[in-house]
């Protein structure tokens, strides 16, 4: 609780407990005035299971931050802690603080954080499956005045022309990629200040992944900050300007996207690239071969 957001494992201790945003030169966090700040956040599920063990994350205004790491590292939990969805799953921010635009939000229910401008696009393409595409989108803009909502709808259709063609379709029967577009579009309808997207490429065809990411690149021109959780590390680091690597509920590494892209460990563990840049194949990995022989 004492240490400010400057203190984080893997990063240099900068500015101590001042709580101000560390400068870009240090590896202490992304530059720019912070929109979202997690300081020493711990998350407990059902009162006993400690999932996040004190993490510090800063998302600057209009910035894009990627959360990387293996399954079960706590990436999705981090997003849930911010959006408040955690509370619907018997989870709790048991220590530390989450600040958004300078105000504490870790005690807010999910429906309240949305009103502050935080939109959480959950994993698994959660469309409202019995409603049409247009109803999904209109419902997404329910907090706005009706004139603004109409404008947002046009803007969303501009971003996703495919959704405009499908507007009358029942969303449960769309393809996976279309559903992913729909949930992102639905979040856009609320005109968020911060959009957090959990695994947008999960289970999608490569072409569709490309399309989704090209839309995310376009979203970066908009006046909003992005947090993206993604297994496709290369794509995520091409999009983001700063990245955090989580493992087992802790941040083990953080740095600018370029520095992470060139980081040996990241390349090895998450990108599957060797030191010289050649793509590693499972055929080169000894224990895999041995196992294969044993099985054969």
């Amino acid at each position: 609780m004492v240490a400010g957001p400057g203190a984080r494992p893997g990063g240099a201790l900068t500015e101590g407990a001042s709580g101000s945003a560390p400068s870009t030169e240090s590896s202490g966090g992304p530059g720019g005035s912070p929109l979202l700040e997690l300081s020493n956040v711990e998350v407990t599920y059902s009162g006993v299971i400690l999932v996040l063990k004190g993490i510090n994350i800063i998302v600057p205004e209009r910035g894009c931050v990627a959360l990387l790491g293996p399954n079960g590292a706590g990436k999705s939990t981090t997003l849930k802690a911010v959006s408040g969805v955690l509370k619907t799953e018997e989870g709790l921010v048991s220590a530390g603080q989450v600040r958004f635009a300078g105000e504490r939000i870790d005690t807010l229910a999910a429906e309240r954080t949305v009103r502050r401008g935080i939109l959480h696009v959950m994993e698994g393409r959660k469309v409202l499956e019995h409603m049409t595409v247009e109803q999904n989108l209109v419902a997404g803009g329910h907090l706005q005045r009706s004139r603004d909502a109409k404008e947002s709808l046009e803007l969303t259709y501009e971003y996703f022309p495919r959704l405009a063609d499908l507007r009358g379709r029942t969303s449960g029967y769309l393809s996976g990629g279309e559903q992913q577009m729909l949930v992102i579009g639905r979040a856009l309808m609320a005109r968020p200040k911060l959009m957090m997207i959990d695994e947008p490429s999960l289970g999608l065809a490569p072409l569709m992944v490309e399309e989704i990411f090209s839309i995310l690149h376009r979203l970066r021109q908009e006046d909003l900050a992005l947090v993206i959780v993604e297994q496709n590390t290369a794509a995520a680091l091409a999009l983001a300007d700063y990245g955090y690597v989580l493992d087992n509920g802790r941040i083990v590494l953080d740095g600018t996207a370029e520095s992470l892209r060139s980081n040996e460990d990241i390349r090895e563990f998450y990108l599957g690239l060797g030191a010289t840049g050649e793509r590693k194949s499972f055929r080169d990995i000894k224990h895999y071969r041995r196992r294969k022989r044993w099985l054969g």
Partner: peptide, 8 residues
Amino acid sequence: QIAQSMGI
């Protein structure tokens, strides 16, 4: 849960 994540 979706409703809550949409601010409802």
